[in-house]
Design a protein around this nucleic acid. Structure first.
Lengths: 251, 251
DNA sequence: ATAACCCCTTACGTTGCGTCAGGGTCAAGT
DNA sequence: ACTTGACCCTGACGCAACGTAAGGGGTTAT
C-alpha cells in the first residue's frame, strides 16, 4: 500500500481517544453527515486537521447542551446567528435547571413528610388508620380536582401539625416497649386504650369492633406490618392481639 | 350486554383527561405492566378506583424525576426502601441541575467572549487574521492536551487584553468611515498602512503579498465578509481593494 | 504465519412516549 | 334499522444519541 496516511492524519480510535469520546460517536457523526472524514483505499476513515478542528467545535457546543442538529447548523451553515442561538440555548438550559430544582424541592418535601413520624411512612401510617388511601393529596388535588379527593382529606388536614405526629410516634414507641409484657398485660391494655381514644379524638369514630378490624389489618397487609414493625420487631402482631383483647373487654 | 362498567369505573380517555396525560401513556403503562386495568368483554380498558390511585402515585414519582422502572419498583414492590430511593434520586437530580448550571455558565462565558470585540465575532476576527482557526482554545486545551493546540495560541494570548481589542475595533470603525473616500484615497491608504503595521506588531509577520491575500480572504469567505461588514456595508470589498492597492505600492 | 490490534458495516436496544394506520364498539339521532 | 360521531383496540414506526454486539477484513510486529 502506498502511503495514504500522512503525518497529521489520524484514524478513528486515535481521534476518539484524543477527544475523549467513543469510536461509535465518530461513526455516528459520520453517518449523520456532521463530521465526514476522508477514506483510505481500504475504507478506513482518515481524519485531517480540518476534521479535528471541526470536531473541537462540535464538542464545544455539545457541552453547551446544544442538540446535534443545532450544532450541525452552527458549524456548517455560514449564515447562522450564533449569538441568538446562544441566548435561546441559555433559556432552555435555564428552564431545565429550574425543572430539576423544582424536583429537588419536591423530593425534599416528600422526605420531610416521611420523616415526620419518625421514619414511619406517612402514607402507610395514614392507611393504617384507614382515612386516606392517597398519600399525596396535595398533588392529587392539583391534578384531579376536588371531586376526586374525597372527604378523607379533612381528617388528613388535622395531621398537619407536628404535635400530633409526635404523639403518634410516642404512642408506637411506648407500645413497642410494652410489647414484651404480652398483649394481655395491664400496661399494654392501658396503652391500647389510650391508642383507641387517640384515634377517636383525632381521626374519626371507631367502634371497638372497627378497632379490632384495624388491628387485623396491621398483620394482614404486609405494608402496615412492615411499617409498624419499624418501631420494634413483632409490634404489629402484638398490637393485633392486644387490640382484639381490648375490644373484647369493652363489650 | 350486561352492566360491565359500574359507577366509579372509568375508560381510558376519561382517565387520561382527568390526569392530564395522554391515552398513549396509559396504553404504555399497561403494556409495561405498571398499570394494568381490567377489561370489558369487548376489550375496553376499565380503570377502577385502585388503578386511579395507583396512577396518582405513579405520576407523583414521575414528577420527582424517577424513571418508570424505578417507579415500578416503588409502587409494586412491598419491600422497597423508598426513603433511600428518594435520597438517591435527590442526588441524581442535583447532579443534573449542576450540569445545566455549568452549561449556563459556559454559555455566558461564550456570549461574553463574543461580545468582547463590539459585536464582532472573536472567532471570525481571529480567523480573519489567520492565526487561529479554533475559537475556543481554552476548551481545546482541556480536551486535546497541549500537543493539539499549536503555537497559534501564543499569538492568541496577546489578544487577551482589552486595549488590543479596542484598538482593533477602532481600526475597523475608522476604515468603515473612510471607505466612502474610495480605496485609493490618501486617507484610506494611510489607514490601511496602519492596519498592516498593527497586524505585524501584534499578530506575526505578514509580507505585503500575504497582506493582499488576507484582503482576498475577506471577500472570498462569506464569514469574514459578514463579520467585517458589520462595521459597515461593503467594508470587506473596500478593504480588499485598498489592501491590494497598498500592497502594489510597496514593491 | 500468527497473534494482537486495529478497521468496517449492519443492526438491534435504550426511554417514554407521539403519531399514524386500519379496524371494532357504543350511544344517540333519524 | 341505519348512520353518525366519538370513542375503543392493536400493531408498528419514529425520535436522540449513541452503546453494544456480531460477523468479517486490514495492518503490523514478531
Amino acid at each position: 500500500m502506498k502511503q495514504e496516511r500522512r503525518g497529521a492524519d489520524i484514524l478513528t480510535k486515535e481521534l476518539a481517544d484524543l477527544a475523549g469520546i467513543s469510536v461509535r460517536t465518530l461513526h455516528y457523526y459520520d453517518t449523520i453527515g456532521m463530521l465526514v472524514p476522508e477514506r483510505s483505499s481500504s475504507g478506513y476513515r482518515i481524519y485531517k486537521d480540518e476534521h479535528v478542528q471541526l470536531l473541537q467545535q462540535i464538542l464545544f457546543f455539545r457541552e453547551l447542551g446544544f442538540s446535534l442538529e443545532d450544532i450541525n447548523d452552527i458549524v456548517h451553515s455560514d449564515s447562522f446567528d450564533v449569538t441568538e442561538a446562544l441566548h435561546t440555548q441559555r433559556q432552555m438550559m435555564e428552564q431545565k435547571k429550574q425543572r430539576f430544582e423544582r424536583m429537588i424541592e419536591k423530593i425534599d418535601e416528600t422526605i420531610d413528610d416521611r420523616r415526620g413520624a419518625g421514619n414511619m411512612m406517612n402514607e402507610d401510617k395514614f392507611r393504617g388508620v384507614d382515612f386516606s388511601k392517597n398519600p399525596y393529596e396535595q398533588e392529587a388535588r392539583e391534578k384531579w380536582g376536588d371531586r376526586a379527593v374525597d372527604d378523607a382529606n379533612e381528617k388528613m388536614r388535622r395531621f398537619d401539625n407536628k404535635e400530633l405526629e409526635e404523639k403518634w410516634d410516642a404512642m408506637f414507641q411506648d407500645l413497642a416497649t410494652l410489647r414484651h409484657n404480652g398483649p394481655e398485660s395491664t400496661d399494654a391494655q392501658e396503652k391500647i386504650g389510650e391508642f383507641y381514644r387517640f384515634l377517636n379524638d383525632h381521626f374519626g369514630t371507631y367502634s371497638p369492633d372497627m378497632f379490632r378490624g384495624l388491628g387485623e389489618m396491621y398483620v394482614a397487609d404486609e405494608r402496615f406490618t412492615e411499617n409498624i414493625d419499624r418501631y420494634g420487631q413483632g409490634l404489629a402482631v402484638f398490637m393485633n392481639e392486644a387490640m382484639a383483647v381490648w375490644a373484647k373487654k369493652q363489650k
